[in-house]
Simulated assay, not measured.
Amino acid sequence: MSKQRRSFSVEFKHDAAALVVDQGYSVAEACKSMGVGETALRRWVDQLREERGGVTPNSKALTAEQQEIQALKARINRLELEKKILKEATALLMAEEHGRRR
């Protein structure tokens, strides 16, 4: 029987990592207190430190600023895709209209 993988909210990860980064807990103490594994907590701590240093993560961001940056990047990507689609549709319509005039 396989062990079910637990998932944690972004807020939980942030709070657990903040125990180590902001409140001076050791990783072992924070793990015991929060009931998570050391490997996971170390990843969250590293991610929190990187985000506070201005690095946008590939996974879900822990800090509000990086979450906003990720949301804005997603919006930019969506708008660029919509622009590309509209450009291609316009080109098709123009080609069709040009073909009718001949």
Score class of each variant (00 low, 15 high):
3 K>W: 07
4 Q>M: 08
5 R>T: 13
5 R>W: 06
5 R>V: 12
5 R>L: 12
8 F>L: 12
9 S>L: 06
9 S>K: 03
11 E>W: 00
11 E>I: 04
12 F>Y: 06
12 F>P: 00
12 F>D: 00
15 D>F: 00
15 D>W: 04
17 A>N: 02
17 A>Y: 03
18 A>R: 07
18 A>I: 03
18 A>K: 04
19 L>I: 00
19 L>H: 05
20 V>R: 00
22 D>F: 02
23 Q>W: 07
23 Q>F: 12
24 G>R: 06
24 G>A: 05
25 Y>T: 00
27 V>T: 07
27 V>S: 01
29 E>S: 14
30 A>W: 01
34 M>C: 15
35 G>N: 10
36 V>T: 10
38 E>Y: 00
38 E>M: 09
38 E>W: 00
39 T>G: 12
39 T>V: 14
40 A>C: 08
41 L>S: 06
42 R>M: 09
44 W>C: 03
46 D>R: 14
47 Q>I: 03
48 L>G: 01
48 L>V: 04
51 E>C: 02
52 R>E: 06
53 G>V: 00
53 G>T: 03
55 V>F: 05
56 T>N: 09
58 N>A: 08
60 K>L: 13
61 A>G: 05
62 L>E: 06
62 L>V: 01
63 T>G: 02
65 E>K: 09
66 Q>A: 15
66 Q>R: 13
68 E>K: 08
68 E>D: 09
69 I>E: 10
70 Q>N: 05
71 A>M: 08
71 A>T: 11
71 A>F: 01
71 A>V: 07
72 L>R: 11
73 K>S: 09
74 A>P: 05
74 A>N: 10
75 R>N: 08
77 N>G: 11
77 N>Y: 08
78 R>E: 15
78 R>I: 14
80 E>A: 03
81 L>R: 12
82 E>S: 02
83 K>L: 11
86 L>N: 14
87 K>E: 15
87 K>F: 06
87 K>A: 15
87 K>Y: 07
88 E>I: 08
89 A>M: 11
90 T>I: 02
91 A>K: 11
91 A>R: 13
91 A>H: 04
92 L>R: 11
92 L>A: 13
93 L>E: 14
96 E>F: 03
97 E>M: 09
100 R>M: 08
102 R>C: 09
